[in-house]
Amino acid sequence: MDIIKFTSKKSFSIGFIGFVLVLLAALPLYAKGYTPILLTSIFMYVILSVSWTLFSGPTGYMSLATAAFFGVGIYTAAFLGKTLPLPVFIISGGLISSIVALLVGALTLRLRGIYFAIFTFGLVMLISNLLLFWELHAMETRGRFVVIVDYNTIYYTMLIIFVALMLTAYFIRRSKFGLALQSIGENEEAAAHIGINVTLVKVVNFAVSAFFIGAAGATIATRWTYVDPYIAFNPLFSFLPVLMAIFGGMGQLYGPVIGAVIFAYLQEILITRFAELYMLIFGVILVFSILYIPNGLVGLIQKWRKGGQAGEHASN
């Protein structure tokens, strides 16, 4: 009985996901101009927030390096975009971000808690200022132009990165690698003593998450057309994904997706209607959501689904 119910529910959700994907893939056929551009930016936030959760969710390491990997992707597109074809420079953006993550991860993943957070944030500032220094002294120009790409192409690229990321995240969660990640978050010392190579697991996961962030950066750079280190390494891109993931809830894969979609859309509305008040409204929503729904929207949905079933097991 339960099994039948389970499989029919599962095939329903697969069907639903398939339907949404077809709708999204066909979007440029029935919606022109603004809609694909808006969805590209929503997808970008979804990718950032899911990638952040991919690493920081299970392990409990609070990474603020998102803006660093994002910026590395953006600058890769700026350097390589004019000479190389689109897929090549986007994958390069991802790979270079991954390499940075491998190096930084191997160096700093021994730091815990607040120290790791601060260091990763320092990384954003460090790369940004190094680039600026180099641009001003060696190139004697600040900023650069990025190759311009048709907005439908950008939309499809973002969609592909999004789908690839969701598949990766789904399989990692289900695999023994995902279980190892969770055990590290629960208790790193015990995880090491149960035979898990904690350093390797953390660093590899950090690099995987950085790959998607970098690829998203390389893609969106083509829409921004002009970048300089302050635009590319904007610290807001370190914090927004965290907020979106917390707002959506990290317990389920779809949590950061919902969080990012709502926040990105909200940002778009607020910025166009109340340009001066937008950060203020944003902040108020955030404070209230952290105070009243600490497990995010996912927690709220699960609570509502379970109804009175919660607290069934005696905790001791």
Partner: peptide, 30 residues
């Protein structure tokens, strides 16, 4: 650990949010 030396801790250290089965499986897996 993989060579065959295992230990427990003075205060129990279970992976609290994983299921009991997953806790035991981790040992078998790694």
């Amino acid at each position: 650990c993989r060579m065959g030396v295992s230990r427990t801790f003075q205060s129990v250290k279970v992976f609290s949010n994983l299921s009991v089965l997953q806790n035991v499986m981790l040992g078998s897996l790694y």
